[in-house]
Simulated scan of single mutants.
Amino acid sequence: MQETALEPYARLPRPYRDHHILASTVDAFGRALWLLTPGVPEEPPYDAVVVTVEGGRYSATELSAVAVRYPRVDALPDGGFVVAAARSRPSERQVQVFDALGRESWDFRVGDAVEHLLADESGALWVGYFDEGIFGDDPLSWPGLRRWGMDGEPLWRHDRADGGEISDCYALNVHRTHAWACTYHHFALLEVRPGKRTVVRTNPVRAAKALAVHGERITFFGGYGDDHDRLVSCELLGSEVKPLVTGRLTRSDGARVGRRRVVGRGPRIYVQEEPYTDWAVLDISP
């Protein structure tokens, strides 16, 4: 089976290696982020720091009074940050927006059971939900995939009549101001561009957890069981996804990829394995 190796991308700076990692991601501009506390935080609110790594250099921004448990984090184009809880009740503060100085600007809700939260280049938030939210009692989560303004304004929601039913948003790729998603249970590939009708393509690749898109090429990563490191290169043919080559994605040293986080951004899939101090990348654009 063909193997493709990840390339090292970004590393948590040494002064922060003894901190507790709450969340980590790669933003719309390719910057690696870590949300950290000196130790395991007590009950919210707590103070935290966002460490940003870009081109081998890093900066740190202190955040005051983070009010969410088990957070997601991303950066905004104005220099601020968004921190959001994956699980929440309607009465709870779920999403906090911080300015470039680490001060909270406002808070709002996006719904329960957040699987993916990715800010695009405009600062809008794309949120994909897992099944407990889609079939739960929070109507904000029912569409399965939504786009929100950074101030909490609802900008777009998936329409079943337009793009079919979403039972779980398995994979999400956000690039510039549009998104690609692979959803359960048919694993259709959705192409969403604001102001345009959703493009739905049939897709035989099952259970991918990340995807990368470049022109008419698309690559899926992940799957069930022993296919957790499967890599499937495909081409887009009208309303269909056609698989071309199936292989495995490996670490840079050739070993199999283990437990990890993944982020899809345009032609790149970023992979972060435990203990979550390093990001690696697969770029399908070369």
Score class of each variant (00 low, 15 high):
W34Y: 11
L35R: 02
P38Q: 01
P38D: 00
P38Y: 04
G39W: 10
V40Q: 14
E42F: 08
E43L: 15
P44C: 04
P44M: 02
P44F: 03
P45W: 05
D47S: 08
D47Y: 01
A48T: 05
V49N: 06
V49A: 13
V51T: 05
T52N: 01
T52L: 00
V53D: 04
V53Y: 04
Y58P: 00
Y58L: 02
Y58W: 14
S59D: 11
A60S: 13
T61C: 15
T61K: 05
T61R: 07
E62T: 10
A65T: 07
V66W: 05
A67N: 06
A67G: 15
Y70S: 15
Y70C: 12
Y70I: 10
Y70P: 06
A75K: 00
L76E: 11
P77L: 02
P77M: 01
D78A: 01
G80P: 02
G80T: 02
V82T: 05
A85L: 07
R87A: 15
S88H: 09
R89A: 07
P90I: 00
S91Y: 11
E92Y: 08
R93D: 00
R93S: 04
Q94T: 08
D99A: 03
A100W: 09
L101P: 05
L101E: 15
G102T: 01
R103F: 08
E104A: 07
E104M: 05
S105W: 07
S105K: 14
F108Y: 09
F108W: 03
R109S: 12
V110S: 09
V110M: 10
G111V: 00
D112H: 09
D112C: 03
E115T: 08
L117T: 01
L117I: 01
D120K: 08
G123N: 11
L125D: 01
L125A: 03
L125T: 07
L125S: 05
G128E: 01
F130Q: 08
F130V: 09
F130C: 12
F130D: 11
F130A: 06
F135V: 10
D138H: 13
D138Q: 14
D138F: 12
P139A: 03
L145N: 13
R146A: 15
R147C: 14
R147N: 09
W148T: 04
D151T: 14
D151C: 10
E153I: 08
E153L: 14
P154W: 02
L155W: 06
W156A: 09
D159H: 14
R160P: 09
D162T: 12
G163A: 04
E165H: 13
S167L: 15
D168N: 05
C169A: 12
C169D: 10
C169E: 09
A171D: 06
